[in-house]
């Protein structure tokens, strides 16, 4: 389960990519995301994935991104099967399946290299309502906590003779009930306690609270952002005006 969450959970790192302004990281991920939607052939998509792998290498998260790819491939296989059944077009089916992997990786790259605090600052930059920012960031922050809860609940139920891996698919789903109920109840209780703790520490006392961290883009940040934009424009131009590929 922790393996599953690993694709979206931030871990502190000291790579040049980690040190970038979170807004630049968001820009890079957004550009990669859009690129995956713009491509029209499998080979163009491979080029976009190659860029993602290069970014992952700079961020020293290649192993984690690799795991995410393998995991996402399971869902991709499902997309491929559905497409091939209904469209009977191998090329487009492969494209849609691999595109899904690329979309997940582009999003994952942002979340695994950006701390919840940085994420909060990025969202504030866009002047989103404070409650929305807080709710979103808290949800992200609590993913690892919930994963840990899940493991502990599974351990507790396994110790009472529950065999989660036994039986057919329906039995396995039914076996998850003793895990899901405590997980949901704990989450509801925790959110109530968190709300009380926040209010008792003056959450919402002033409309515009001050901030501990103020982000200022360095020269490196600006250069990286410009380079990413240039690469995106060059890529988009070549996809549409140079490479003679028809939309499948």
């Amino acid at each position: 389960m922790m393996w599953l969450s690993g694709g979206f959970v931030f871990r502190r790192g000291d790579s040049p990519y980690h040190r970038l302004d979170p807004r630049v990281k968001l820009l890079i991920s957004a550009l990669m995301f859009v690129s995956t939607l713009l491509v029209r052939s499998f080979y163009e998509l491979l080029a976009v994935i190659a860029v993602m792998v290069a970014v992952a290498a700079v961020a020293t998260v290649l192993k984690r991104v690799g795991r995410t790819m393998v995991l996402t491939a399971t869902f991709s296989a499902f997309i491929f099967v559905i497409n091939i059944v209904f469209t009977r077009n191998l090329e487009s089916s492969v494209l849609y399946a691999v595109r899904f992997v690329a979309i997940v990786v582009s999003t994952s790259l942002f979340f695994i290299t950006t701390s919840p605090d940085e994420l909060e600052q990025v969202m504030k930059t866009f002047r989103l309502p404070r409650d929305v920012v807080f709710a979103f960031v808290t949800a992200v922050r609590f993913i690892p906590v919930m994963m840990l809860d899940t493991i502990q609940i599974m351990d507790a139920q396994k110790s009472r003779g529950l065999e989660l891996e036994k039986g057919n698919i329906f039995r396995r789903v039914r076996n998850m009930i003793p895990v899901l109920i405590p997980l949901v109840v704990n989450s509801v209780v925790r959110s109530g306690e968190l709300a009380e703790a926040m209010e008792s520490r003056a959450y919402g006392a002033v409309p515009r609270p001050t901030s501990l961290v103020q982000y200022k883009s360095s020269v490196t940040d600006k250069v990286v952002a410009l380079a990413a934009l240039a690469l995106f424009i060059a890529g988009a131009y070549s996809f549409y005006y140079i490479l003679p590929v028809q939309l499948p």
Binding site: I153, A156, I177, I181, V185
Partner: peptide, 9 residues
């Protein structure tokens, strides 16, 4: 286990 909330359902 330590936390009873992890098993009651």
């Amino acid at each position: 286990f330590q936390n009873p909330d992890h098993q009651l359902f």
